[in-house]
């Protein structure tokens, strides 16, 4: 099943043509189901870098509670299905980043699902802010109204009215680190990142200039971050006897 999903991700256009295959975007929902069944406690040694097969501790870059910094994204409070899909995409080469591909290639599907559940349950702190010198007014226009002269709908028309995301396939963008958003939008624009549903993010980013990207990244970073919908207990239950 996981292998099939990974193949779907790697051959998105083929998968969408093949009958009886779920559409590529539904991978995030499938992975969310897996994360819902996973034990988030499995993730803790991975986050801390204990007993992993050469993979680095997630916390060594993403911080202790997945808050991220600079170009390293905050993971806390992202949808579990979105996180797990990104890990599978890294492992399958559908999303490119040397560090993340190194790590993802050392995780199995169960560990990925647990990491998704773990980070989705973390509380995001408002640590991001404008760092790129972007034009916040222009960023606000792009986030709230879009720029229809270049077929760019507002960020919020898909990522929700507060930028807090919509279900599994549209992650929250409010309160994310400006340098990370800037890098991702630039990568979508150039085609270096190409794993969004229907190529929607490529079509959006290609209408934006480098200064637009800075502006909207700074604006989004200034917003209050989302909070997790479903809190799960991450404290270890005392063992019986």
């Amino acid at each position: 099943m996981i292998l099939r999903a990974a193949i779907c991700v790697a051959f998105v256009p083929l998968a969408s043509l093949a009958q009886d295959e779920p559409p590529d975007w539904s991978a995030a929902e499938t992975y969310a189901d897996a994360a819902a069944e996973a034990d988030p406690l499995i993730a803790i040694p991975l986050v801390e870098g204990e007993g992993t097969d050469g993979a680095w501790a997630c916390a060594s870059c993403h911080g202790e509670n997945g808050q991220g910094a600079g170009p390293i994204p905050a993971l806390a409070g992202l949808p579990a299905g979105y996180i797990v899909k990104q890990l599978h995409d890294y492992a399958a080469g559908a999303r490119l980043n040397d560090n993340m591909q190194y790590v993802a290639n050392r995780l199995d599907a169960t560990q990925m699902a647990a990491l998704g559940a773990y980070y989705a349950a973390q509380i995001r702190q408002p640590t991001a802010g404008a760092t790129l010198g972007g034009d916040l007014a222009r960023g606000r226009t792009l986030a709230l109204e879009g720029d229809w002269t270049v077929d760019v709908p507002s960020c919020f028309s898909c990522h929700g009215p507060s930028g807090w995301g919509v279900e599994q396939a549209f992650p929250p963008i409010a309160g994310q680190h400006a340098a990370y958003i800037d890098r991702q939008l630039s990568a979508w624009k150039s085609g270096d990142r190409a794993n969004s549903p229907l190529g929607l993010m490529h079509s959006v980013a290609k209408g934006l200039s480098a200064s637009d990207i800075k502006s909207v990244s700074d604006y989004l970073a200034e917003l209050p971050p989302p909070q997790p919908r479903d809190r799960v207990s991450l404290t270890r239950e005392p063992q019986d006897e």
Partner: peptide
Amino acid sequence: AETESAGEAATRAG
């Protein structure tokens, strides 16, 4: 060259 994005140019024209 990145001077003015197509969107910015269209906005200015409007």
